[in-house]
Design a protein around this nucleic acid. Structure first.
Lengths: 107, 107
DNA sequence: TTGACACATTCAAATCTATCGATGTATAAA
DNA sequence: TTTATACATCGATAGATTTGAATGTGTCAA
């Protein structure tokens, strides 16, 4: 995980709307075309209460950061969490910050 | 961990300068008044190559997010990583995203 | 007490971000 | 083919963020 990728991930996470999207992707409350772990963009739109372009904007940021993957099916786009990205972010932080119990460093 | 606190943490992490500070706090390359796991603000300043007010700004954001703690000793302020904050952030993400191997949900 | 130093705060400028309305594009339905 | 639908892109705007110069505050040294 390069630092630039890590920054993109953190930026993607640093917004209430996008955090809400991620929570929704984890436990989707099916409405129109959402099923199983796949969520369509229109459901995200009604979830957020934002305009369609704003929703599109947020999804693009999440996809670019790698936190979410997208699949086009006809007119619909289905989104899904990408657990691997979360895992490598967690790994990065494990390297940056010492685990809670060990002393930081003897200098 | 409330969502608002989580957003503050993510915002704090979403900047190259601040990520650099965190890496430095983890493995401080002692220069002027840094020793052990304590780092003074002036060393952060020379690390970043930014102005003193900009450095102060970044440190304030990190402290407010809880990622870093500060201790005043005379004229100096020593900063230290707060591992507990990283731990609770990690816990939040573990709740938001399913662990890599388990399927997300059967709907 | 005076001067130097470490850091905070204020202010303004430049840049970035989130948002919406309008419009474009691709696909499905009629 | 025509129309409707799902989503992307563009352009503009309001608000947030980063930054430095100037200045303020508290602490140490002389």
């Amino acid at each position: 995980m390069y630092k630039a990728a890590m920054i993109d991930i953190c930026k993607a996470l640093a917004d209430p709307a996008r955090l809400k999207i991620l929570e929704f992707l984890h436990r989707p409350d099916a409405q129109c075309c959402t099923f199983a772990d796949r969520v369509c963009a229109c459901d995200v739109e009604s979830l957020l209460g934002l305009s369609q372009p704003a929703t599109s904007h947020h999804m693009r940021i999440l996809v670019r950061a790698g936190l979410v993957t997208s699949e086009k099916h006809g007119r619909f786009i289905y989104y899904r969490l990408n657990a691997a990205a979360f895992a490598s972010a967690a790994e990065y932080f494990a390297r940056v910050v010492p685990p809670p119990r060990r002393p930081a460093r003897a200098a």
